[in-house]
Nucleic acid binder design. Structure first.
Length: 112
DNA sequence: GGGGTGACCCAGT
DNA sequence: TACTGGGCCACCC
């Protein structure tokens, strides 16, 4: 199937929607999980997909590997994350405590 | 078909 | 611990 990355987009969006409230994950994790299903993609690609098709999913639960929200939507993400009750650091650039709220697709679904 | 961009990640300094 | 550079993959002009 050399169609567009529509299937990849569906996998990414589905994974993001599976993130339970009060939890968060990283682009790398989503990229790895999506790559397992579609065989393609990377953290960079996930970011691009989210920017174009992430309007219908809790994109704010997806942050960078550092735990910080994407610079483009950091403000919006922090507000939503705090509303979700996600543990954030007390520093100026609030970062998600992935050690506490870190969620992974294979954590909710059996990895075969 | 080629080059540049982007909601990223990792290693080195 | 924070900043910089290179690599990565898919999309747009």
């Amino acid at each position: 199937m050399r169609e567009v990355a529509e299937d990849y987009v569906e996998v990414v969006l589905d994974l993001v929607q599976q993130i339970p409230p009060g939890r968060a994950t990283t682009y790398g994790v989503i990229a790895e999980a999506a790559k397992e299903s579609t065989g393609r993609g990377s953290a960079r690609t996930v970011g691009t997909v989210m920017a174009r098709y992430g309007g219908g999913v809790p994109w704010w639960r997806v942050v960078t590997a550092s735990g910080a929200a994407a610079d483009r939507v950091a403000g919006r993400a922090i507000e939503l994350l705090r509303a979700e009750g996600v543990p954030l650091t007390s520093h100026d650039p609030p970062r998600v405590d992935l050690a506490e709220a870190g969620w992974e697709p294979w954590e909710d679904e059996p990895q075969m």
